[in-house]
């Protein structure tokens, strides 16, 4: 059985995820197949993926470098196909193990992002399909617009910092809680 940090007995067990002016959702169970190194792009293209420019996301494929990408919600057999493929095909990069994945939304979403991220993520300044590799909530992170269910941002970051990240977001959102109260 696989255990993610926020699961019972996980490392971040008991850490509350805020809801209200800002809502934080744990998406760490989202399958994410990551490759890095020579052959990454050619392998993914051979599998029929459209590989976008660096720091763009298209159809759930995040291009993070010249030869680095992550496929979200990939079909189960992608790993098997990769195993079977001939090199160069990139190297497996353990993205469901290295990173936690969370989603931020809520009426104060943009105010909060301006507090916890130095990149301008405002509407107009940061488009759908763009990826920012930067710092979110005091940790190195990758973030992009994910508007399924209203405006939101998905964030990938060091899985060991799950509790830290959730707490940092909660502290930053405290200002809006107090405003609302």
């Amino acid at each position: 059985m696989r255990l993610y940090p926020l699961d019972p007995q996980g490392a971040a067990e008991g850490t509350p995820l805020i809801t209200g002016p800002v809502s934080l959702r744990d998406d760490s169970r989202t399958p994410r197949f990551g490759l890095k190194g020579r052959g990454t792009v050619s392998f993914l293209q051979a599998q029929g993926y459209e590989v976008p420019e660096v720091n763009r996301i298209a159809n759930g494929l995040l291009r993070l470098g010249r030869e680095e990408a992550v496929v979200l919600n990939h079909p189960e057999d992608l790993r098997t196909r990769w195993d079977a493929a001939a090199a160069p095909k990139g190297y497996y990069s353990w993205r469901e193990e290295t990173w936690a994945m969370m989603h931020l939304s809520g009426p104060h979403l943009f105010d909060l992002m301006a507090k916890i991220c130095p990149v301008n993520l405002a509407n107009g300044a940061f488009a759908q399909g763009e990826i920012a590799q930067t710092r979110v909530g005091y940790v190195e992170a990758i973030t992009w617009r994910d508007d399924r269910g209203g405006p939101g941002f998905s964030v990938l970051f060091d899985i060991a910092a799950t509790a830290f990240f959730a707490n940092a977001v909660a502290t930053a959102a405290g200002e809006f809680e107090r405003e609302t109260a």
């Binding site: 720091n55 010249r66 130095p118 990149v119 590799q133 930067t134 710092r135």
Partner: peptide, 10 residues
């Protein structure tokens, strides 16, 4: 060159 203009503390 890869990520564009950023604060230097990144």
């Amino acid at each position: 060159p890869m990520n564009g203009p950023r604060n230097i503390n990144e």
